[in-house]
C-alpha cells in the first residue's frame, strides 16, 4: 500500500517536469501545424476576388490573412474537381483521365511499388541479418555506399533498359524497377532482424524446421509491426511522388502528377491561390483517410508483434 503511494507520487512529480516540457513543445508544434492547415482550408473557401481584391474604404487590400468576409464558397473545390484531369496522347487521340482514374492509377502504383519494396527489403534484411556469411557484410556496406552516392543523369539509361526489357510504361515494370533494397527500409529490417535472439531459430531448427518456414512462420511474424510500418511509409511516399510515374508510366497519370499539373495550369479560371490549394486538398484527401484508417491498424499490429528488446 505504502509503496504504491510512493510510486504514484514519484510518477506525478516527474510527469510534472519532464512531460510538461515535452507537452509544451508538442503543443507549439501542433499549433503551427493547425494554424497552417486552418489557413489553407480557410483560403480554399474564399473566392479569389476576396483573396486578392477585397476592398476596404474603396481601396483594394485583399483578404489573405483573415476569415472570409463575403461568405463561404465551395466553388474552388468544384472547379478543382472539374479541371483535375490529365490528358495522355494515344496515337491520334488524346485520352482524358478524370480524378477517379488518376486515383486508381495512384493506388496501383503506390500499392504495387510499396509491396515490392517492402518484400524485397524484408527478404534482403532477413538474409543479411540472420545469415552470417561474409557476403552479407558486403551487401550491407554496399547499401550504405549507394545511399551516399548521388547518381547523376542515369534516367535516360534506365528508360533505355526498361524499354529493351519491354517493361517501360507498364505497372509490373515499375513495380520491378522500384523493388530495390538500396534504401532505409532495408536498414530498418536489418536492425529489426538483428535484434531477434538466435535462440528462436535454433529451437525451431532442432524441431526440424526448414529455413523457409523458419523465416515465414517464426521470424517474419515477429516483425509484422515493422513490416506494416514500412509498408505504410513506402505507400505514402509513392503516393505523393509524381516525378517517377511521370517518366516511367506516362500512359497512367497518377493523382500526384495531376496535382503537379494543376498547380501550373494556364487555365485562367483556376490559376489562382484559393483554387490551387483546393486542388491540393482534394488530392490529399484519400491519403489522409488512408492514414487515419491504417494508423489504427498499425497500433494493433505493433502490439501483436511485440518482441522484447
Amino acid at each position: 500500500m505504502d509503496q504504491n503511494v510512493k510510486i504514484k507520487a514519484v510518477k506525478r512529480s516527474s510527469v510534472n517536469v519532464f512531460a510538461i516540457a515535452i507537452a509544451v513543445l508538442l503543443a507549439i508544434y501542433m499549433l503551427t501545424m493547425c494554424i497552417s492547415l486552418f489557413w489553407t482550408i480557410m483560403t480554399t473557401v474564399k473566392t479569389n476576388a476576396e483573396y486578392e481584391l477585397y476592398e476596404e474604404a474603396g481601396l483594394i487590400v485583399g483578404n489573405k490573412l483573415w476569415l472570409p468576409k463575403t461568405g463561404i464558397s465551395l466553388n474552388n473545390y468544384k472547379m478543382a474537381f472539374q479541371y483535375f484531369y490529365v490528358e495522355v496522347q494515344e496515337e491520334m487521340y488524346t485520352v482524358q483521365y478524370d480524378i477517379f482514374q488518376q486515383f486508381l492509377n495512384s493506388f496501383l502504383y503506390s500499392f504495387g511499388c510499396a509491396t515490392s519494396v517492402t518484400v524485397v527489403s524484408l527478404v534482403m534484411g532477413y538474409a543479411t541479418a540472420r545469415f552470417r556469411y561474409k557476403f552479407s557484410n558486403y551487401i550491407y556496406a554496399f547499401v550504405l555506399v549507394t545511399m551516399a552516392l548521388p547518381i547523376v543523369g542515369s534516367m535516360p539509361s534506365e528508360i533505355a533498359v526498361a524499354t529493351s526489357l519491354n517493361i517501360f510504361d507498364t505497372f509490373p515494370g515499375i513495380w520491378i524497377m522500384r523493388g530495390s533494397f538500396l534504401n532505409t527500409y532495408f536498414l530498418i529490417f536489418f536492425a529489426q532482424f538483428k535484434m531477434i535472439p538466435k535462440d528462436y531459430t535454433e529451437a525451431a531448427k532442432i524441431d526440424g524446421a526448414r529455413p523457409f518456414s523458419i523465416m515465414l512462420k517464426i521470424i517474419v511474424p515477429l516483425a509484422m509491426g515493422t513490416v506494416s510500418t514500412v509498408f505504410v511509409l513506402a505507400f505514402i511516399s509513392f503516393w505523393n511522388d509524381f516525378q517517377i510515374p511521370m517518366v516511367y508510366i506516362p500512359s497512367y497519370p497518377v493523382a500526384a502528377y495531376g496535382m503537379y499539373k494543376f498547380q501550373n495550369t494556364p487555365i485562367v479560371e483556376i490559376a489562382n491561390t484559393p483554387t490551387r490549394l483546393a486542388g491540393i486538398c482534394l488530392m490529399a484527401l484519400p491519403i489522409v483517410i488512408f492514414y487515419a484508417i491504417f494508423n489504427k491498424k498499425l497500433n494493433v499490429n505493433l502490439s501483436v508483434g511485440g518482441v522484447k528488446g
Binding site: 512531460a19 515535452i22 507537452a23 508538442l26 489553407t40 490529399a284 491519403i287
Partner: peptide, 29 residues
C-alpha cells in the same frame, strides 16, 4: 500522456501531405 494520440497524428501529418502543399503554406506563412 495527455493528447499523445493527437500529437502523433500531427507529427506524422507532414509525411502524409503532399510536400507541395506544405511548401506553399509555409512560404505564405
Amino acid at each position: 500522456w495527455v493528447l499523445s494520440k493527437t500529437f502523433k497524428f500531427f507529427l506524422f501529418l507532414p509525411s502524409v501531405l503532399p510536400s507541395i502543399l506544405l511548401v506553399i503554406v509555409f512560404k505564405f506563412f
